[in-house]
Computed example of a mutant assay.
Amino acid sequence: MAQLEVFARTEVGCVRKRNEDHFVVQNLQTGERGLLPHQRVQPLTSRGTLIAVCDGMGGAAAGDVASALAVDVLSAVIHSKAPFASTAAAQEVMQEAITAVNDKIRAAAVEDPARHGMGTTLTAALAFGPELLIGHVGDSRAYIRRGRSLTQITTDHSVVGQLIAAGRLRPDQARDYEHRNVLLQALGVQPRVGPEFDVVQLRAGDVLLLCSDGLTGPVTDEQILGLMLRYEDPLRCCRALTEAACAAGGPDNVTVAIARFSGEGLELPHGREEVAVHRVQVAV
């Protein structure tokens, strides 16, 4: 049977006083959330596994509250709707969950004026077969490592991300761009949100990385790939990636989640097969 081996880790970094990131790993078959030893290997069943990373924003306005609300609401909604008859049905559920997250954060800010302006990014993966569904708002990222190549799946919902997507800025120029941290979308900030959905055809040996920009800010994609190739075990790889971000100055909270897919039911890559991605952008 096909399965995934998963781990996740979060660190406050070297500059921030508190951690505004949150993550969730949930076995949708059992409902369990966590990373105890017996929870780190899960079958790719029709109910599936949910993995998500959220990067809260707002500082004193409680970005940590926003990201915590996000993972709680996301997991509750998706767990209540599993199993999924198709990838299209799973996408509808994830869109419903993301809308619920947005509404919950906005309502919490109204109830407590001190939390006005809080928000969060969200990058979530739903694994329940040979197709992987990724839902995304903000500038946290999803990558797939296949063989010795690393492919960024999501597009940053930021000024820099759009400039790169339009071919007006090279990725290596983005690190020094003046407005690199300006987000165009985040949950809890606007009445409506337009998430991006990506469907990836998994192959045996694929490795999923979800991360906040606390990793991708100070650590290059080349360095990330090098560490992922060096550390196959998700636990060791998560530790190596977060430590690399801290060694590079740790300017932000850093959160990573790694899932490695294997077993019967997943095709082997065909030669140097590239990662096939089908994208659906939902209008705001």
Rank of each mutant, 00 (worst) to 15 (best):
Leu44Tyr: 05
Ala61Val: 03
Pro218Met: 06
Gly263Ile: 03
Glu92Met: 12
Lys81His: 10
Ala248Lys: 15
Thr255Ser: 15
Cys238Phe: 10
Met94Ile: 12
Leu169Arg: 12
His38Asp: 15
Ala61Thr: 06
Met94His: 11
Val71His: 06
Asp103Glu: 13
Val77Pro: 02
Tyr177Gln: 06
Ser158Asp: 01
Asp198Ile: 06
Glu267Ser: 14
Gly58Phe: 09
Ala60Lys: 15
Glu11Lys: 14
Val25Ala: 10
His179Phe: 14
Val282Tyr: 07
Ser140Cys: 12
Thr123Val: 15
Leu169Cys: 05
Met228Glu: 01
Arg33Val: 14
Gly34Thr: 09
Leu210Glu: 05
Asp156Phe: 02
Gly167Glu: 02
Leu210Trp: 13
His79Ile: 03
Val284Gly: 12
Ala108Trp: 01
Ile134Ser: 12
Ser46Pro: 05
Ala245Ile: 13
Asp221Thr: 12
Arg18Met: 11
Phe23Pro: 09
Leu169Thr: 03
Leu183Tyr: 00
Glu222Tyr: 05
Val53His: 01
Thr10Asn: 09
Val189Arg: 11
Ser75Arg: 14
Val219Trp: 04
Ser262Asp: 13
Val65Gly: 01
Leu169Ile: 03
Arg47Thr: 06
Gly271Phe: 07
Ala125Thr: 11
His278Glu: 14
Ala70Gly: 07
Arg175Cys: 04
Ala276Pro: 02
Asp156Met: 06
Ala248Trp: 04
Leu210Ile: 04
Leu69Trp: 03
Asp103Lys: 12
Arg148Gln: 14
Asp103Cys: 06
Arg192Ala: 15
Asn19Leu: 07
Gly117Glu: 00
Ser158Asn: 04
Ile153Trp: 03
Lys104Asn: 07
Val275Pro: 00
Leu202Val: 03
Cys14Gln: 15
Thr154Asn: 02
Val254Arg: 08
Val15Lys: 15
Ala109Cys: 10
Pro83Phe: 04
Glu264Pro: 05
Arg9Ser: 11
Gly117Ser: 09
Ala127Ser: 15
Gly59Met: 10
Leu50Ala: 12
Val182Cys: 01
Val137Cys: 08
Gly194Lys: 14
Leu227Gly: 08
Lys17Val: 12
Gly48Asn: 04
Gly194Thr: 04
Val256Met: 09
Arg33Asp: 03
Met57Arg: 05
Glu111Asn: 09
Leu183Thr: 00
Ser158Trp: 00
Gly31Tyr: 12
Ser140Glu: 04
Ile258Phe: 06
Ala259His: 08
Arg16Ala: 10
Arg236Gly: 07
Glu196Cys: 10
Ala276Thr: 08
Val284Met: 06
Ala125Gly: 12
Glu20Asp: 09
Ser46Trp: 02
Cys238Thr: 13
Val65Asp: 01
Ala2Gly: 10
Ser140Tyr: 08
Gly56Asn: 10
Ala82Gly: 02
Gln185Ser: 10
Ala8Cys: 14
Ala174Trp: 11
Arg47Pro: 00
Asn102Tyr: 07
His157Ser: 04
Cys237Phe: 07
Leu241Cys: 09
Phe128Ser: 14
Gln185Phe: 02
Pro37Lys: 13
Asn181Met: 07
Leu4Ala: 10
Ala240Val: 01
Glu5Arg: 15
Gly226Cys: 06
Arg115Asp: 00
Ala85Thr: 13
Phe84Trp: 07
Pro269His: 02
Leu209Gly: 02
Ile98Leu: 15
Gln185Met: 10
